[in-house]
């Protein structure tokens, strides 16, 4: 029952003041017992953070679900104004960037510096292309007067210029505002995550080219990878929900 193992007083404090001075790699934080613990803690921490992100987007998805069911015709009409070619392309681009990011993690794991930098740069480029296309789409919405709170007009939905489109009654047409608001809120929040991601990527490229992640310290790359894939997943859901409502019309 006796436990001498609980140290009650400082036995001996080395000159460094740090109680344990085994030789650990430089990137190990000294409050961890060993590098395995540090790595596990880091990736678990990242996952817990992603839980938070799920719930953050969750609120928006919940709102979407309700209004889509209430105002289905408006959502169909709104969705059909989006450019499906650009949307599909963007989905492919983002999946590509997820792939390059996965490869970047692999390169770091294999300790290949050049390859790591290459894949990180590719990820940045693909992310940039995605945002570029998104900007084109946003601009199109601006031209069409489809930005709620800014220059919204229901003209196009009440008297469609496209002969195949079904006109909406004015009160239903008003509800397209809700669709577009959710469109901007969801894709905007997603784009914000992408922009933050690209900022972090730029920082990581700089460090990677100095060999920071290819000497065993892959945690930052791995964790960033998780973040980036999460952002990809959000888009995987946004794409069908926003672009693909009753396209056959």
């Amino acid at each position: 029952m006796d436990s001498p193992s609980i140290a009650t007083t400082p036995h001996e404090l080395g000159s460094s003041g740090l109680p344990h001075a085994h030789d650990h790699p430089a990137f190990m934080r000294h409050h961890f017992e060993d590098i395995g613990q540090q790595r596990e803690a880091a990736s678990f921490g990242m996952w817990v953070f992603l839980l938070t992100e799920i719930m953050f987007f969750g609120g928006l998805f919940c709102a979407y679900l309700i209004f889509r069911n209430w105002y289905h015709p408006a959502f169909v009409a709104g969705s059909n104004t989006l450019d499906i070619t650009l949307g599909t392309t963007n989905t492919a681009v983002l999946i590509g960037s997820s792939f390059t990011m996965a490869m970047a993690v692999y390169s770091a794991e294999m300790r290949r510096k050049g390859q790591l930098v290459l894949f990180l740069v590719l990820t940045i480029l693909l992310g940039g292309v995605f945002l570029g296309i998104k900007a084109v789409e946003y601009h199109q919405k601006y031209v069409d007067h489809h930005i709620p709170g800014m220059n919204f007009s229901i003209q196009e939905f009440v008297h469609p210029t496209n002969p195949k489109a079904i006109p909406l009654a004015p009160d239903m047409a008003e509800k397209t505002q809700l669709y577009f608001f959710l469109y901007f809120a969801m894709t905007g929040m997603h784009a914000l995550h992408m922009i933050i991601g690209i900022g972090l990527l730029l920082f990581m490229v700089a460090r990677a080219s100095r060999g920071a992640y290819t000497a065993g310290h892959v945690i930052p790359v791995e964790n960033f990878g998780l973040y980036w894939h999460f952002v990809d997943i959000v888009w995987i859901f946004l794409f069908p929900l926003l672009y693909l409502i009753s396209r056959y019309r």
């Binding site: 590098i35 395995g36 996965a102 294999m110 065993g216």
Partner: peptide
């Protein structure tokens, strides 16, 4: 190289 840090590395063909 370090103890406990056993990780699975997924290979490129899977990706």
């Amino acid at each position: 190289t370090h103890q406990d840090a056993e990780v699975h590395v997924v290979k490129p063909p899977v990706y």
